[in-house]
């Protein structure tokens, strides 16, 4: 782990990893979209609308996963003082917010024909909306605090405190009688979903994860460049 703490090493690693990541991402998206839009059968209740699920469900997973990794990176930053951990959390936030927004929008598109409303205030939807607010709040902290070192310390606290919401999102459908359907993939006793639907879902999830990793590497690269620029500027005014 400590080996990659060095930004120069990280940049080199990103350089070599990015092309294959993009290659596999495109393949996974092509396969995933083909399977979900063409080969997967329509649902016996929901009909063709079910295909929205293949975009919606992995996006919601990602929104939770990215926030979890942000909180984990913040804990790592606090304990091991790993210099890239804060940067990774900062870079992940807008990507996670994007997935969260995608989950909300596609969920809304699905909700209109199914529930007859673009939005209903049930526990799952509300807690995902709160998740989006937490993403925005976290990003606002980085923006509001001038000194990057101080911003990192404060952002850690915000990320860790907000993690409380993640289990609430996950279990909201079990704890409250939610309109939103319950878990059918990650549940005790194995998935309850047909294999022809499960596979495209998993491949889409893989594609999203790869997309996230690729975007994260790029965002961290630009973050490193920005910090370098700041250092150079500070050196420029030194002693003038």
């Amino acid at each position: 782990m400590q080996k990659f703490a060095n930004p120069a090493r990280f940049l080199k690693l990103a350089e070599t990893l990015l092309p294959p990541i993009w290659g596999v991402t495109i393949l996974a998206f092509a396969a995933g979209l083909y399977m979900s839009l063409v080969t997967a059968p329509p649902d016996y209740q929901q009909g063709e609308t079910v295909r929205i699920m293949f975009v919606h469900v992995p996006a919601a997973w990602m929104a939770l996963m990215v926030y979890t990794s942000m909180a984990a990176a913040s804990v790592m930053a606090a304990i091991f003082r790993h210099p890239l951990a804060d940067m990774a959390a900062k870079a992940a936030a807008p990507i996670g917010a994007m997935f969260c927004l995608l989950a909300l929008i596609t969920g809304s598109l699905w909700g209109k024909p199914m529930w007859g409303a673009w939005w209903v205030w049930d526990a799952r939807l509300t807690s995902v909306f709160v998740l989006l607010l937490l993403y925005l709040g976290y990003m606002a902290v980085w923006q509001a605090i001038e000194d990057p070192h101080r911003a990192a310390l404060i952002a850690r606290i915000v990320a860790i405190a907000g993690f409380i919401n993640v289990p609430i999102v996950k279990f909201s459908v079990d704890w409250w009688n939610s309109l939103h359907q319950g878990a059918s993939v990650f549940r005790m006793g194995g998935p309850t979903i047909d294999a022809r639907m499960l596979w495209p879902l998993l491949i889409m999830a893989l594609a999203y994860t790869l997309l996230f990793v690729g975007l994260l590497l790029i965002a961290m690269r630009s973050e490193i460049a920005q910090r370098k620029l700041r250092q150079l500027r500070l050196a420029g005014i030194e002693g003038r």
Binding site: V130, L133, L134, L136, A140, A144, I145
Partner: peptide, 18 residues
């Protein structure tokens, strides 16, 4: 969380209302 920020009021609302 916002003690040293000049316009922390809005940020407090964004962070705490959730």
């Amino acid at each position: 969380i916002t003690v040293a920020l000049r316009r922390g009021g809005l940020l407090v609302s964004l962070l705490i209302l959730p």
